[in-house]
Simulated assay, not measured.
Amino acid sequence: MSSPVLRLTKVERTYVTDSGQLPVLRGVDLELMAGEIVGLIGPSGSGKSSLLHSAGLLERPDGGTVEIGGQNCSDMKDGARTRVRLSQVGFVYQFHHLLPEFSALQNVGMPGMIAGRGEAWSAERATELLTQLGLGERLHHQPGQLSGGEQQRVAIARALTNQPRLLLADEPTGNLDPETAAVVFQALYDLARGQGVAALIATHNLELARFMDRVFTLKDGHLEPWQG
């Protein structure tokens, strides 16, 4: 049997506030397999972003372990964590964070350039992804020349440029109208599934959550299967 792309074991995260300590993750366990699309729901402030940031090595949890591709990343030094993040993890956020002065092709190819894959490889990979997402005619448009849904599809392509094993998405359709959100989610779903990526997607959209393989709700710092 293949091993999980992502394994979280007893992950804990506590923040210090003016009124004392605020635990948001109280021993989270989760495994994601290649090609699996898993949803994460819960109210604002429940810890969804903290869980994604811990899973994606953007934050260090206060306890527990994070394994990506069979590697225990919890005790890695910052440089090693950065290398794992660049090569094995893709991120999509509610806001696209595209560089406005660059074209869609350049924005998507940039992670490949940063990873040292070269201009030709990065441009070819970016063209392939953007075309799959229906943006083959928009390669040389800047973000300001694209609609909100097109911008978010560019952000999805950028997250997958370096052929990551794990995709983490934090409210990727939260800034879009319902019709556009459905289109963008379908594009994300199809591309992640087609690339064999393990995806963890935080969303408030319960209609979209119903299309995922599994859905968990984050409640009182623990993951529970969603009963929707």
Rank of each mutant, 00 (worst) to 15 (best):
G39C: 10
G20S: 14
H96N: 12
R165M: 11
L40V: 06
Q94K: 01
V11L: 12
L200P: 10
S54I: 05
D190V: 12
V183F: 01
E207S: 14
R60Q: 13
I41W: 01
H141Q: 11
Q132N: 14
L139T: 08
S74M: 00
W226E: 01
L6R: 12
P61C: 11
Q195W: 06
S87C: 04
E67C: 08
D170T: 00
L223Y: 08
T180K: 05
D62W: 02
D78P: 00
H204D: 01
L166Y: 05
V215R: 03
A80T: 01
E59K: 05
S44F: 00
V24S: 12
D177S: 12
L40F: 05
A157E: 01
R214D: 10
A104M: 01
Q163P: 00
S3M: 14
F216N: 07
L218R: 02
V38F: 09
L166A: 09
V11P: 10
I201P: 02
A123D: 13
T180L: 03
T180F: 06
D177E: 07
C73M: 06
S2T: 14
K48N: 02
N107L: 03
H222Y: 05
P172D: 13
G174H: 07
I37R: 15
S19A: 15
G194L: 12
L98T: 07
H96Q: 10
G39K: 01
A182E: 15
Q186H: 13
G35N: 10
L8C: 14
E12M: 11
A182Y: 04
L22S: 11
E179H: 13
G109Q: 10
Y93E: 09
T65A: 10
F91G: 10
G148N: 03
G148H: 07
E12D: 15
S122M: 12
F95D: 06
